[in-house]
Amino acid sequence: MVPIIRSEWLKLRRSKVWLLLFFSPLLAGLIGATASMTPDVDPWVFLQATVFYTHALLFLPLLTGVFSAFVCRYEHIHGGWKQLLAMPVHRSGVYLVKLLAVMGLLAVVQLLTVVSLLAAGMIEGVETPFPWGAVLLHVAAGWAACLPLAALQLAVSTAWASFAAPLSVNVIFTLPNMLVANSNDYGPFYPWAQPVLAMLPDRLGAGTFLVPTDTLLAVVLGSFAVFLAGGLLYFTRRTI
């Protein structure tokens, strides 16, 4: 695995994907910094809700798709796959490293979003201490909730050479979030709504999830297992 990771890092390092890391945190932070605070809610909980909602409702699932398409793009365009898979490496290793790359990029985005929340709070003049534990818990949960989406998008991105095709799939599944995420009955079971649900604090206060933790875990892990198994099965058998 390690050699494949190092090789992937070399390809990723010089790509322009880095520019994409900043967009969502910046926009979400901006919205947080300009939001008018509600006096009867804990300021950090309010800001967390604003910034993370902006970030995770659409951006985070969409970015998952963009990153997945991106790490496959440089293999697709100039015959990288055939060279890579004619190397003495296991296909499953190659696939898992691509997944790792996507999740790594998402981790950076998540951390930048924390910075963004912190900055928004400073601009808004919040004086209470920053709830590190709660915020990091939600950020990590939101990141983990992207696992199934990344697994599915990676499967689609390895299958289709075009950049637009996997993104279409991504958008088709992500746009319904605008409705589904607000539904108490269906939101918890829709994989694309999990990142935003996992990142939002409950009204009761920071550190609790909007959705029962066991449902969240079951949906995220269940869909991850299905998508990953499907993607791996396909990728290890496909004709290059």
Binding site: P3, I4, R6, S7, L10, K11, R14, S15, K16, Y74, I77, H78, G79, G80, W81, K82, Q83, L84, A86, M87, P88, V89
Partner: peptide, 27 residues
Amino acid sequence: GSLVEYPSYYGHLNAIENLETIRLLLP
């Protein structure tokens, strides 16, 4: 060692880096 159909490469890397991505995979 193989070269199939047309050369494979990563356009955003230089020749040394391209070869390095492969070398890392060759124990």
